[in-house]
Amino acid sequence: MNFKGGLTTLILQNLNRGPNHGYRIAQDIKQKSKGVLDFKEGTLYPALHGLENKGLIESYTQEENGRTRCYYKLTRKGTKALAEQREEWTRFAGAFTLALQET
């Protein structure tokens, strides 16, 4: 399912649970949605870098098994943005469900 606009919200939600790296974020989103929310993993990094530019997340590097891994974590601004986006999405989804009801 294509969900281009919602990817940033899902990234923020994932990082709300704690710092994470690109590959794990992608796998978590796919697993949590039971494969319904599938996306090309190359699109994840521009989205992450965009969120970083906006100051919603921060990155830091860490050495792991001889590899330098880039981790991302949510900032205070990001937490606030997530709350707003979640509320907006809940309102939108509720309205959509109501509109689809056959009564």
Partner: peptide
């Protein structure tokens, strides 16, 4: 293949950097 189209990814990256 799972990374997707490199041209599309590059276009998005050039918008951010």
């Amino acid at each position: 293949v799972e990374l997707g189209d490199p041209k599309a990814a590059g276009k998005s990256l050039r918008k951010k950097h």
